[in-house]
Amino acid sequence: MIVAVGMAIGYVGIVTPSIPILLVGFVVFVGGTGGWVHDDMRRPSSPFYGVGTALESTFPRVSARKLGTWLLLVTEIMFFSAIIGASWTLRLRTTTPGADFQGPWASPNQILNVPLTGLNTFILICSSVTMVEAFAAAEKGDQRRLRLFLLATLILGIAFVSVQAYEYQKLYFQEGLTFKSAPYGVNPLYGATFYAQTGVHGTHVTAGVLALAYVTRKAFRGGFTKENHEAVELVGLYWHFVDVVWIFLFPIVYLLPA
């Protein structure tokens, strides 16, 4: 109910359009979703029976939560595909001489700092291995390694977001790459597509950091056992997913030639 109300308020904010109303809707939506997940995770997950127990040898059962997480990730695949596809289309249409021509695209390193982002990519890869090691520790019931690796993942996630924030302020205020303009005679749509693609990814990473903070806090309170640690696995699935998105986004945004 709270989630639906949040979405309704957000929709009104989009239609009006009013950023304060949109933000209120967002806060209500996030609060409702967080409360829902928190309440749900207190109970063990029910299994998903697929097409029925008669075909269980063909369709082995998985946890309903895991199935739901994978379905969520598929919607995220479509979401990111739409953002990247729209940016790619804008790039193709406006960099070709003709009626829609608005200027060339930037070359790698011309505006963006490829070595810095390469380092950030490495940070995200490191966070993926620490996350999966945390899950492996949870499966073995090794509390010390679980806490250690979850904390390491959280710190690496915060580092990624921090480097991105540093990059944004450098690009926006020093390089002059804004939503409407770009330096060095580069296509003015370059900034809009750059911030759209990396911004939605950064938002997802931030959400992942919040989820990681939740499971890390719970791990330090002894909330996970060898038998019940599904939250670690589900947050891990989400975290690896944002890593996969970045694996594609990094070459598309930073490395492809003009």
């Binding site: 109970r43 063990p44 997950s45 029910s46 299994p47 082995p60 059962r61 998985v62 946890s63 499966e139 038998e227 019940n228 599904e230």
Partner: peptide, 14 residues
């Protein structure tokens, strides 16, 4: 819901 039903289907643990 029984906890055993949650753990049984996880193929990753093998």
């Amino acid at each position: 819901m029984e906890e055993t039903a949650t753990r049984e289907p996880t193929g990753s643990e093998a």
